[in-house]
């Protein structure tokens, strides 16, 4: 569905050139749900704008929905949907009129555009609001309107740029329900950017991490966390004097790293906490060391980002 090779974008801002994207290779197969993750300014939106034909790449090629974005832009545009960061409907227009315009832009007749508009308003739960203006809608309703605009041409591939940013938790869940239903009903390939880590974590089957214009990790959230960050174990011993002995035992666990003792508390990283924790407790028991408390924490994608770059995503946002 998406095949990008060596995609770069260099902007010239006030006579200094900025390399926003520095060589992105990416393949997305039909039906995938991919989250494009990275801090602000990492190049997420620039990549998206190149893949949707909004921005000509400085170099490199991309085939999207079977066509080249530069030489066959019209064919690409006919086959993709795009939901941008900002509201898609103009403030001066009735929302139904905007949907009809959108349909006409995809070549529908006025009558077909009108019936498709009514249909989409129903799909996103805005039926009866045809004559309203965007300013009278709630934040969640506006986002649903954006989704309706993006679905006009029944695209097999839909790009979403931060679809849930700025929404309250209930609206976010609602938007996600719509996105996931699209996928279930039509097998739509979804490519979205987000900087909500937990969203990428729970919703996407594949996470592509971008930083400073380069892809630095690509895989399932689970694999990325296991490979790059690992789980964290914290065991509190009855006797602080046992800590060095316990640390020796911990070193034998699969994937053990970053073992540290602070008084009776021993912390370490392991590949899979669910298996490592019982094993560690049995080993402590066999050695005659008494553990008083034990807990494991799963890593977040932020830990992955930290492991990859030494920074957290939130640092970048601040």
């Amino acid at each position: 569905m998406i095949h990008a090779r060596g995609l770069t974008k260099t902007y010239t801002l006030k006579k200094t050139s900025v390399d926003a994207v520095r060589g992105v290779d990416l393949d997305v197969e039909a039906g995938q749900l991919v989250a494009f993750l990275g801090p602000n300014g990492a190049g997420k939106s620039t990549c998206l704008r190149m893949l949707t034909g909004l921005l000509p790449p400085t170099s490199g090629t991309a085939r999207v929905a079977g066509h080249d974005v530069t030489t066959e832009a019209a064919a690409v545009r006919a086959r993709i949907g795009y939901i941008g960061q900002k509201g898609g409907a103009g403030e001066a227009f009735r929302i139904g009129d905007e949907l009809v315009t959108q349909g006409r832009c995809y070549g529908l007749t006025r009558r077909d555009a009108r019936s498709r508009a009514e249909e989409l308003l129903t799909v996103v739960g805005l039926d009866g609001l045809f004559a309203r203006k965007p300013s009278t809608l709630s934040g969640g309703q506006r986002r649903r309107l954006d989704i309706a605009l993006g679905l006009m041409n029944r695209p097999p591939l839909l790009f979403l740029d931060e679809p849930s940013t700025g929404l309250d938790p209930a609206s976010r869940a609602d938007i996600w329900a719509h996105i996931l239903r699209l996928r279930a009903d039509h097998g739509t390939t979804l490519f979205l950017t987000t900087h909500y880590l937990e969203e990428a974590d729970t919703m996407a089957e594949r996470v592509v991490v971008i930083d400073q214009g380069r892809i630095i990790a690509d895989g399932t959230a689970r694999a990325l966390k296991a490979d790059l960050a690992g789980d964290r174990l914290t065991v509190t011993l009855h006797d602080p004097a046992d800590a060095p002995r316990a640390a020796e035992l911990a070193a034998g666990l699969p994937g053990a790293a970053e073992i540290a003792a602070d008084g009776p508390r021993l912390t370490l990283r392991v590949a899979a906490a669910d298996r490592a924790l019982p094993e560690f407790l049995r080993a402590l028991d066999a050695a005659g060391l008494k553990a008083e408390a034990a807990e494991s924490t799963r890593p977040t994608l932020d830990d992955v980002f930290l492991a990859l770059t030494g920074r957290t995503i939130e640092d970048e946002d601040a």
Binding site: R77, K86, E91, C105
Partner: peptide, 15 residues
């Protein structure tokens, strides 16, 4: 106004 909002961008993605 359409550039500041997202509607111009939305139209530019259509054919």
């Amino acid at each position: 106004l359409d550039l500041i909002g997202g509607s111009m961008e939305r139209l530019l993605v259509t054919p």
